[in-house]
Simulated scan of single mutants.
Amino acid sequence: MGAQDRGRRGPAPQRTLAENRKARHDYFIEETHEAGIALLGSEVKSCRLGRVSLQDAYARVENGEVLLYNVHISPYEQANRWNHDPKRVRKLLLHKHEILRLYGQVRQKGYTLVPLRFYLKDGRVKVELALARGKRQYDKREAIAERDVRREIERALRTRVR
């Protein structure tokens, strides 16, 4: 047991920093991938404070890299003049075979890459990236109706048990 391992009891819990709830409403999520993200120091500090917005965020495969667009990470107040641009394009860290597989699916099947959440894992900021297919308006209505029916059933079961 090394000096770093002392006092550790299993894997550290993941702490969610930001979540894209609208993505599950707007897309059918086919599969998810965990990716690292290349951030500046002031961005990491701002992320730890939960100042991240994933609204309208998406990823693209360009030149053999996965780039993340439209993620707003608020400037860190204590960083003064060395602060970052809040909406800059950020690189996602994935293995080459994962990038090639995602590129093939996005190109052929009409999928899109959407970040679902930012979270901390072992002190590092990670992104849960989803391979998603867009929902049509009637799909969204069906999902809402299904959710309402499920709620009614749960409510009826709760009152029946008492």
Score class of each variant (00 low, 15 high):
I37P: 01
R117Q: 12
R60I: 15
V161A: 11
E34N: 10
Q4E: 14
D56W: 06
T32Y: 01
S42I: 03
Y27K: 01
E62W: 08
H95L: 13
H84C: 05
I29D: 06
R21K: 13
E152S: 07
R90L: 14
R107N: 12
R48E: 07
L157C: 03
T32C: 05
L54V: 05
A57K: 00
A132H: 01
L68A: 01
P11H: 09
K135Q: 00
K96F: 09
A38M: 11
A23H: 03
R160H: 13
L67A: 00
R90E: 04
L100N: 12
N63E: 15
I99N: 04
L157G: 02
W82F: 10
Q108M: 12
E62G: 03
Q78N: 11
L93V: 13
A23G: 06
Y58T: 06
R107M: 13
R155H: 12
R8Q: 14
L113A: 00
R158H: 11
G2K: 12
E128S: 07
Y138E: 09
T16I: 15
Y103F: 13
R150L: 11
R9H: 14
N83E: 07
K121E: 15
I37W: 00
A156K: 08
V161K: 10
Q14V: 11
R6G: 11
Y138W: 07
P11T: 08
L40K: 09
R101L: 09
Q55L: 14
R48Q: 14
R147K: 13
N63V: 10
E31L: 05
H84N: 08
L131G: 02
L93C: 06
D56P: 02
P11M: 08
L116H: 01
G41N: 05
A145L: 10
V89S: 04
G134R: 10
L67T: 01
V71L: 02
R51A: 10
L116W: 02
V127M: 03
V89M: 07
N63D: 15
K140N: 00
A23Y: 02
D148F: 06
P115F: 08
V71Q: 02
K22L: 14
S42A: 15
G134T: 06
D56Y: 08
H33I: 06
L92F: 04
Q108N: 13
R88H: 03
P11L: 15
W82Q: 11
D122A: 14
G104K: 08
I153Q: 05
G7L: 06
G41R: 02
D26R: 06
E154F: 08
G10S: 09
R88S: 04
L92V: 04
A130Y: 04
R151P: 02
R8W: 12
K135Y: 00
K109F: 14
D85A: 14
H97F: 09
I29G: 07
A38H: 10
G104Q: 10
A59E: 05
L100Q: 13
R15G: 08
D122R: 14
Y27W: 08
V61K: 07
S42F: 03
L40M: 10
D148S: 09
V44K: 04
T159R: 12
Q137W: 03
